[in-house]
Design a protein around this nucleic acid. Sequence first.
DNA 1: TCAAAAGTGTTAATTCTACACCCATGT
DNA 2: ACATGGGTGTAGAATTAACACTTTTGA
Lengths: 227, 227
Amino acid sequence: MSDHPPFAVTVDVVLLTIRAGELSALVVRRGEAPYRGRWALPGGFVRPDEDLDAAAARELREETGLRHGFHLEQLRTYGAPRRDPRMRTVTVAYLALAPDLTSPVASTDAAEAEWRPVDALLSARPGLAFDHGRILGDALERARAKLEYSPLAAAFCPEEFTIGELRRVYETVWGTAIDPRNFHRKVSKTPGFLVPTGETTTRDGGRPAQLFRRGSLDLLNPPLTRG
Amino acid sequence: MSDHPPFAVTVDVVLLTIRAGELSALVVRRGEAPYRGRWALPGGFVRPDEDLDAAAARELREETGLRHGFHLEQLRTYGAPRRDPRMRTVTVAYLALAPDLTSPVASTDAAEAEWRPVDALLSARPGLAFDHGRILGDALERARAKLEYSPLAAAFCPEEFTIGELRRVYETVWGTAIDPRNFHRKVSKTPGFLVPTGETTTRDGGRPAQLFRRGSLDLLNPPLTRG
DNA sequence: TCAAAAGTGTTAATTCTACACCCATGT
DNA sequence: ACATGGGTGTAGAATTAACACTTTTGA
């Protein structure tokens, strides 16, 4: 009880978005051993004076330039003794959801980061570096589960979005079809979920659709420090 | 990205049970500074060659003698820079649920461990040592939420239990009254939840009640390593 | 015989689900 | 005009909630 062996502590971020109708994750190509050339989750060491949530937000910012408009939550911590062959490392994994970032892909980090469909990443052989395949699988499971009971899906949408766009998020993440009429009724009747902007758009074709913003009383960017 | 400052990594366990009609947690009295004399969650350092789940199970065993019949899951990881004034420590918190352990309270550990009602622990001033008050609060929230959509409540019951006893678990954890008739129908019609033993008991008074065991296809002791 | 808890039946309110139908735009 | 997606109405199914009522024990 008196020895405290040193560990390296890292954060890894599973950043999910929807691109071209596919649920995709941001991955980086590893340039050095181990797992050289394989895809890995973006992440890095927690700094000496940095909280875990702050470290995850920093990694996300370094890879994408994102400073706000995303959802970030702690997922789970992984610490199997030999998960990193170089040293004893414990990683705190985070789940992040963001809209399709076609504009601000400006990565300040040197590593080449790319979007890949989650399905492809999970089924590819060889898989992701380290235990990142399992982390990605857990993140996918969490994301799917949370859509059911939280207004989280709107985190995948741009600032202003239509109900049809929001529905396509659910359909993409779950891989199922949803009745557009019932979905419309359900979300538009949930108080505080959607805030109408008063504007309309025809970008999805057909009759003009109302534009909404995420409700302010939701779970997006929940207090990172809950006092 | 090339420095990896050393961290101490610990596990802390929130072990909940129901004693005398109150939701209670196992806490230990701290014998040394910091927070000398205050209640803390049982926990300790992760060993150099030990997985996180294994460390949590070991701590639980050392404090209670429990080897099986409990539920154990990772809760969340806490790593604020100055959460332990002695050194930079990251703790992986676990949530454990167990039946009332009147018999096997045999602690192999030296620290004096006691059961305390969760309400009292959360409202007492001064509160728990370190950030353990917040951890306990998060654990309570998780436990309440999981009762809603998982068969977890049975983890608080002894090996054989009646439906009324199971109902009292929900009523204690949530602090609400539940209609006994509807509750009976609901749980007895959920396939795989309860396994009838064929025995009955009158220990709760009134008409004899059927005894059940936890269904085997449930979430208790889920695979600690999910392959 | 009475209190207490187990267990069943019934009904009304509510919530899902499927689908008919109309609306307002671009082409 | 017509295809396309947006949006409303409605009827039946399924689920929930409230509560009357019977059963089987201990005291």
